Amino acid sequence: MSSASSSDESPLRFHPRSLQNMKVTHDGTIARRQNTSFFTRGLVFGTRPITQGEKITFKLMEVAENLGGFVYVGFTSRDPDTQVGVSCQKIARESGYWTWFFPKELCTQGRSLFYYVNNDGEVRYGVDDCEKGKFPGAVRPLQPLWPLFDIFGNSSSIRLVQAPPSNKSTTNRRTVPLSLHSTHSRSLRVTKNVSQRLDKGYTQGYVFSERPIKPNEGVLIQISPSQPGPRFQGFVHLGVTSCDPAQLPRDDLPDNVNHLVDRPEYWVLICDFSKLNCGDEIGLTLTKSGQISFHLNGGKFKGVVHVDATLKLWLFVNVYGTTQAIHLMTCPEPAKDEEKECVVCYDNAIEAALYRCGHTCMCFECAVEQWQGKGDGHCPLCRAVIRDVIRINK
């Protein structure tokens, strides 16, 4: 049985020809139902046949509140260019189509869902890079297979996500060790740029960079967790602080990392990294404007926060769960401000910072809506309560 892989073919896109109630935008990566009062009429195809083992990854971008998202996925052996008047009802009755209902419990807004066909014709599926099972039956893999989607029910748009590159972020990049500070939690041992746990405890894993990180500096955190235990998997929390570690007593740090933001110093906390595996790398870059972007394994974008770049900022990491060690590296290549689209509307540029979590992931209009009602007052990335929305002037 073969496993999923990336493809050397051109990037997969939605077919530009609109079917019934669908509109394709953003260079073919987003398909949206134009009239959301219809709960059907959401059929759309891919632009090319897939290869065996190629992951088809997508996100449900708009799901009605208090109700689940729904999507059928599948394949067709018929070229979408030749299909006229095709409908969801028609493909259910005719040969040359294979469709499955994606498990409802996985269909939540913003999660990365995927499916692929292996050499045996099995169609397997999963979420967030974790395989969950296989759909019943099989397809005939030795023929062209175009992917298809039926966006219906309370889902109104999906976005195709290109698979991240298989190589790590250090490939073709020059890195040098970034030393860790002598101030650290009691459960850690620090040697140069390596932090190692001394016991089996799950908390009190704080460690700091020896010096403030520089504007336009990139940092790599290399993860070395142990085998998953019965209670936790590999976790790290990270962020920046204006607190000089040399002035910080070792026992003056809370067991609960969320309490750091209540301290009098400036602390910005990022809690977006869990289920880490040995060899994973978290990349972090700070620009002169105060934008911090962070990634996983070189290509999988995780998010952006905006910080006060007028302060001296030390990087801190809380080694948590079954994660046993981290290696800290720095990348001398200058970092650039990344122009990202709002994670809600996918039309406008990011121009708002959320207080107090610090995430910058939305345009100002969507951020206000997320704060005052549509998003139930929570950050869409970390689910922290939004206290205020600050417009970013670039």
Rank of each mutant, 00 (worst) to 15 (best):
T170H: 14
T170D: 15
T171G: 11
T171R: 14
N172H: 15
N172C: 14
N172K: 14
R174D: 15
T175M: 10
T175A: 09
V176F: 08
P177R: 11
S179R: 13
L180E: 02
H181L: 01
S182T: 13
T183S: 09
H184T: 04
R186A: 08
R186T: 03
S187V: 02
S187Q: 05
S187I: 02
R189T: 10
V190P: 00
V190Y: 00
T191Y: 07
T191R: 06
N193M: 05
V194L: 06
S195P: 00
Q196R: 09
Q196V: 12
Q196M: 09
Q196I: 12
R197T: 06
D199F: 05
D199K: 01
D199T: 07
D199Q: 02
K200A: 15
G201Q: 00
Y202E: 02
T203K: 07
Q204D: 05
Y206K: 02
F208V: 04
E210G: 11
P212H: 08
I213E: 10
I213F: 12
K214C: 13
K214F: 12
N216D: 15
E217P: 13
E217L: 14
G218W: 07
V219S: 07
V219G: 06
V219Q: 07
V219D: 05
L220E: 14
I221W: 05
Q222I: 08
Q222S: 11
Q222V: 11
I223M: 01
I223N: 01
S224W: 01
P225R: 00
Q227I: 12
P228S: 03
G229R: 08
R231E: 15
Q233R: 13
Q233G: 13
G234C: 04
G234H: 04
F235M: 06
V236P: 08
L238V: 06
L238S: 05
G239R: 04
G239Y: 06
V240T: 05
V240D: 03
T241H: 02
T241R: 00
T241P: 02
T241L: 04
S242Y: 04
D244G: 03
D244S: 03
L248T: 14
L248R: 12
R250T: 12
R250F: 10
R250L: 09
D251M: 03
D252E: 08
D252M: 04
L253M: 07
L253W: 01
N256R: 10
V257S: 05
V257A: 05
N258G: 14
N258W: 14
N258C: 12
